[in-house]
């Protein structure tokens, strides 16, 4: 078969190189990318991945470096190298201060807040996602507006409220106030993070076919029973997403948790107060703060790894789920 018989397009494809043009290395590289866009996409993917990995993981690496450097040699820490090796910081943080108690406080507050938020947001999400009634959109907007305020706007009234002595609380609470109790933390924090969860769950619950709820109600559940037996299990990715987002935010929350307690661990001071407690009046134990930070990340890291699969499908599949 001679070249004349070939289809002109095929002939053009054969000629990868155009020898007449004298190209510089950049031009040649660009031409290669244009003729083979997959390479360009792959290159972009790796560039983006490396960028995100470095920006997210480098701080951890640096924390770790600082954490294993002995306190006296902190000035020796280089850009990439530790100033020495002394892993005892990871033990000192628990002996000098009850750092485990701070972590436990935050963990407990975050867990309780997550449970409350998921329960209330499930009921609200059901109402907004599945019922039709007058003024629904206005009400939903009102709920969402709460999350638009800066938390600081709520602080003064809440602080006054929680420092007010309530006679009913006196037998159970010290001094009859909510100040220095976990309630003073997770009540406002739950309220502030509730709208986001309501919104996530509303989207998921609205996509469960009506027939399934009707079937559950006929089989013997109430509306609420159908919600928790059928709608919630089928919306597991959405519930996991809302739950993990709430847990992480509350666990890392500092504003309310530091202001609603006096900073002592036995008064439910949170994990961040614990990290900052290694900052003395005359010296700052950066290595201990670094070690404490790494330890504090662990519970969240474990939670995310466990729930990862659900979260990913929750963030991506929500919109198209049947």
């Amino acid at each position: 078969m001679s070249a004349d018989d070939e289809h002109p397009d095929l002939a053009a494809m054969e000629q990868v190189q155009e020898p007449d043009l004298d190209r510089g290395p950049v031009e040649a590289w660009a031409a290669k990318m244009i003729s083979n866009p997959d390479r360009a996409y792959r290159a972009m993917f790796y560039t983006a991945t490396v960028f995100f990995l470095v920006t997210t993981l480098f701080p951890f690496y640096w924390l770790f470096m600082v954490a294993i450097t002995p306190g006296r040699e902190l000035s020796e820490v280089g850009a990439l190298t530790p100033g020495g090796f002394d892993p005892t910081s990871f033990i000192t943080i628990f002996t000098r201060l009850p750092f485990h108690r701070y972590v436990f406080n935050s963990f407990l507050i975050a867990t309780v807040a997550t449970v409350i938020v998921l329960f209330v947001a499930s009921l609200a999400g059901y109402v907004f996602g599945r019922l039709r009634f007058r003024g629904k959109n206005a009400l939903l907007l009102l709920v969402l507006v709460t999350s638009f305020f800066p938390p600081a706007a709520f602080f003064v009234p809440l602080n006054r409220l929680f420092n007010t002595q309530v006679a009913v609380l006196e037998p159970i609470m010290s001094e009859g106030t909510l100040y220095n109790t976990p309630y003073a933390i997770f009540i406002p924090v739950s309220a502030i993070f509730l709208p986001l969860s309501i919104f996530i769950l509303m989207t998921f619950y609205s996509q469960i076919p009506d027939g399934l709820e009707d079937a559950a109600r006929i089989e013997g559940t109430t509306r609420v029973g159908a919600l928790f037996r059928v709608i919630v299990p089928l919306s597991a990715p959405g519930v996991a997403t809302a739950g993990v987002l709430t847990f992480i935010t509350v666990y890392n929350e500092y504003f309310f948790s530091s202001l609603m307690t006096d900073g002592r661990p036995e008064n439910w001071a949170p994990m961040l107060e614990g990290i900052l407690a290694f900052q003395g009046q005359y010296e700052v134990d950066f290595h201990l703060m670094a070690a404490a930070s790494i330890v504090a990340v662990l519970p969240v890291a474990i939670l995310v790894i466990v729930a990862q699969e659900k979260i990913v499908s929750g963030l991506t599949a929500g919109a198209v789920k049947e």
Binding site: P209, G211, L212, D214, A215, A216, R217, I218, E219, G220, T221, T222, V230, P233, L234
Partner: peptide, 18 residues
């Protein structure tokens, strides 16, 4: 519905997928 002693088959079948 649960206290009426009825049962129902739906157009979209409505088995619980989980």
């Amino acid at each position: 519905p649960k206290d009426r002693g009825i049962s129902m088959v739906f157009q979209n079948i409505a088995l619980f997928p989980h």
